[in-house]
């Protein structure tokens, strides 16, 4: 690809990753079947490994295209922004389904539940103990990620690194507190519809916090090795959007499930 191009778009090179990623997902799916059906984890571990190495190499190539080849022009970035917005909207609807299930069961509790919510025999977690601390932790991390963004836009390298480190630490602290809360919980996912809706909704939120923390750790690493400029740091922006989304979902979970639901 020598010479000039007379358009601002990015025409990607041939890449093995879509095919490899599809095959890895297939291996992982069959691995899950083998685990559930025959209690064998060999294929599951192989599938997980393949998915991870595909993600690492695919995103490494995206970084090469963006930071080292300059393929992410303002037109390309506009497409990436729209893609990320659509992805987050799809995530909103993913969580909407869990809230629907929760309100379906809690607004008109059936006879089997004792016509009351929380159901008879369920002792919910105290919303004003660890969950309130978790709310404060996650809201603070939203502040620190905004601090990191402003530091980045003003070209303050060390400040951006510090702010991102605080954000990552708060994210990990949240995960640790949630893990402890799960361990201590007096009900399980098998305790009727209360347990199911509680653990599926908060569990998927926890998974999203782990994914968001990983995304922010990658951003921190990229900031340390000088990948971002004051005006060109979409990878970080996408991570920040995702983090704010996770934050907002938590607020709804806290108010609806932990507070009102208890």
């Amino acid at each position: 690809m020598a010479g000039y191009q007379v358009h601002p778009w990015h025409l990607v090179e041939p890449s093995p990753w879509p095919l490899v990623g599809g095959s890895a997902a297939f291996t992982l799916t069959v691995g899950l079947v083998m685990w559930f059906h025959y209690n064998s984890t060999v294929l599951l571990v192989l599938g997980l490994m393949l998915v991870v190495v595909t993600m690492v190499q695919w995103w490494r190539d995206v970084i090469r295209e963006a930071t080292f080849q300059g393929c992410h022009t303002s037109y390309v970035l506009a497409g990436l922004r729209r893609g990320m917005v659509l992805f987050i909207i799809s995530e909103v609807f993913f969580f909407l389904a869990f809230f629907w299930a929760f309100f379906h069961s809690s607004l008109a509790p059936t006879v089997e539940l004792g016509v009351t919510w929380p159901p008879v025999g369920i002792h919910p977690l105290n919303a004003f103990a660890v969950p309130l601390l978790n709310t404060a932790v996650l809201l603070s991390s939203g502040v620190t990620v905004t601090w990191a963004h402003h530091a980045l836009m003003e070209g303050k390298r060390m400040e951006a690194i510090q702010a991102l480190m605080f954000t990552v630490m708060l994210g990990l602290y949240f995960t640790a507190l949630q893990a402890w809360e799960y361990y201590e919980a007096p009900f399980t996912i098998a305790d009727g519809v209360y347990g199911s809706t509680f653990f599926v909704a908060t569990g998927f939120h926890g998974l999203h916090v782990i994914i968001g923390s990983t995304f922010l750790i990658v951003c921190l690493g990229r900031q340390v090795v000088y990948h971002y400029t004051s005006s060109h740091h979409f990878g970080f922006e996408a991570a920040a959007w995702y983090w704010h989304f996770v934050d907002v979902v938590w607020l709804f979970l806290y108010v609806c499930i932990y507070w009102w639901g208890s």
Binding site: A2, G3, G70, G155, K156, R157, M158, A160, T229, S231
Partner: peptide, 27 residues
């Protein structure tokens, strides 16, 4: 934008040129 010859070794001016500051240079 973004169509400098691939043999050029300087950073693309539209990304790294003025008034954009590389995040590393200031501090």
């Amino acid at each position: 934008e973004g169509v400098l010859p691939l043999t050029q070794t300087e950073a693309p001016p539209l990304i790294f040129g003025s008034p954009v500051k590389p995040a590393g240079e200031v501090a």
